[in-house]
Amino acid sequence: GTVKVQGITIKVPNPDKAYKIAKKLAKKYNLTVTRKGNTIKVE
C-alpha cells in the first residue's frame, strides 16, 4: 500500500500497521487520516 503525507507518498507493506501509525501521528499533529484500501492519506 501507500501512505500519503502532505503530498509525499510512501509505499508500505502493511497498510493496517501503517494506518495505526498514521492515526497516532495525525492525533499528535492534528491531521486527518483517510484510508482507501492500501492507500493511506494524511492531510
Rank of each mutant, 00 (worst) to 15 (best):
residue 1 G to N: 06
residue 3 V to K: 05
residue 3 V to W: 09
residue 3 V to N: 07
residue 4 K to H: 14
residue 4 K to N: 10
residue 5 V to N: 05
residue 5 V to F: 15
residue 5 V to D: 02
residue 5 V to H: 14
residue 5 V to T: 04
residue 5 V to W: 15
residue 5 V to R: 03
residue 6 Q to E: 07
residue 7 G to M: 06
residue 7 G to H: 07
residue 7 G to R: 04
residue 7 G to C: 15
residue 8 I to C: 15
residue 8 I to H: 05
residue 8 I to M: 09
residue 8 I to D: 01
residue 8 I to L: 10
residue 9 T to I: 13
residue 9 T to F: 11
residue 9 T to M: 10
residue 9 T to R: 04
residue 10 I to F: 13
residue 10 I to E: 01
residue 10 I to R: 01
residue 11 K to Q: 12
residue 11 K to C: 15
residue 11 K to T: 11
residue 11 K to A: 11
residue 12 V to I: 10
residue 12 V to Y: 05
residue 12 V to L: 08
residue 13 P to S: 13
residue 13 P to L: 12
residue 13 P to N: 12
residue 13 P to Q: 10
residue 13 P to M: 13
residue 14 N to R: 05
residue 14 N to T: 03
residue 14 N to K: 03
residue 14 N to A: 04
residue 15 P to Q: 02
residue 15 P to S: 08
residue 15 P to H: 05
residue 15 P to N: 05
residue 15 P to C: 09
residue 16 D to W: 09
residue 16 D to V: 07
residue 16 D to T: 09
residue 16 D to H: 10
residue 16 D to P: 05
residue 17 K to Q: 13
residue 17 K to I: 13
residue 17 K to Y: 14
residue 17 K to W: 14
residue 17 K to E: 11
residue 17 K to V: 13
residue 18 A to Q: 00
residue 18 A to M: 08
residue 18 A to C: 14
residue 18 A to W: 14
residue 18 A to H: 01
residue 19 Y to Q: 01
residue 19 Y to D: 01
residue 19 Y to N: 01
residue 20 K to P: 00
residue 21 I to C: 11
residue 21 I to L: 09
residue 22 A to M: 13
residue 22 A to E: 00
residue 22 A to H: 01
residue 22 A to G: 06
residue 22 A to V: 13
residue 23 K to D: 02
residue 23 K to H: 07
residue 23 K to F: 09
residue 23 K to I: 13
residue 23 K to S: 06
residue 23 K to W: 06
residue 23 K to A: 04
residue 23 K to N: 07
residue 24 K to Q: 12
residue 24 K to P: 00
residue 24 K to Y: 14
residue 24 K to E: 10
residue 25 L to Y: 06
residue 25 L to K: 01
residue 25 L to F: 08
residue 25 L to W: 12
residue 25 L to G: 00
residue 25 L to V: 03
residue 26 A to H: 06
residue 26 A to N: 02
residue 26 A to I: 08
residue 27 K to N: 07
residue 27 K to P: 04
residue 28 K to V: 12
residue 28 K to S: 07
residue 28 K to I: 14
residue 28 K to Q: 07
residue 29 Y to T: 02
residue 29 Y to G: 02
residue 29 Y to S: 02
residue 29 Y to D: 00
residue 29 Y to F: 10
residue 30 N to M: 06
residue 30 N to F: 12
residue 30 N to E: 03
residue 30 N to W: 09
residue 30 N to Q: 06
residue 30 N to K: 10
residue 30 N to V: 05
residue 31 L to W: 08
residue 31 L to H: 01
residue 31 L to G: 01
residue 31 L to I: 07
residue 32 T to M: 08
residue 32 T to K: 12
residue 32 T to S: 08
residue 32 T to P: 01
residue 32 T to R: 11
residue 32 T to A: 06
residue 33 V to R: 00
residue 33 V to A: 02
residue 34 T to P: 00
residue 34 T to H: 05
residue 35 R to I: 11
residue 35 R to N: 06
residue 35 R to Y: 10
residue 35 R to A: 06
residue 35 R to W: 12
residue 36 K to A: 10
residue 36 K to F: 10
residue 36 K to W: 10
residue 37 G to K: 07
residue 37 G to V: 01
residue 37 G to Q: 03
residue 37 G to T: 01
residue 38 N to D: 08
residue 38 N to K: 05
residue 38 N to W: 06
residue 38 N to C: 15
residue 39 T to I: 11
residue 39 T to W: 08
residue 40 I to G: 02
residue 40 I to E: 02
residue 41 K to Y: 15
residue 41 K to R: 09
residue 41 K to D: 06
residue 41 K to T: 15
residue 41 K to S: 12
residue 41 K to V: 15
residue 42 V to R: 00
residue 43 E to M: 10
residue 43 E to F: 13
residue 43 E to W: 13
residue 43 E to A: 10
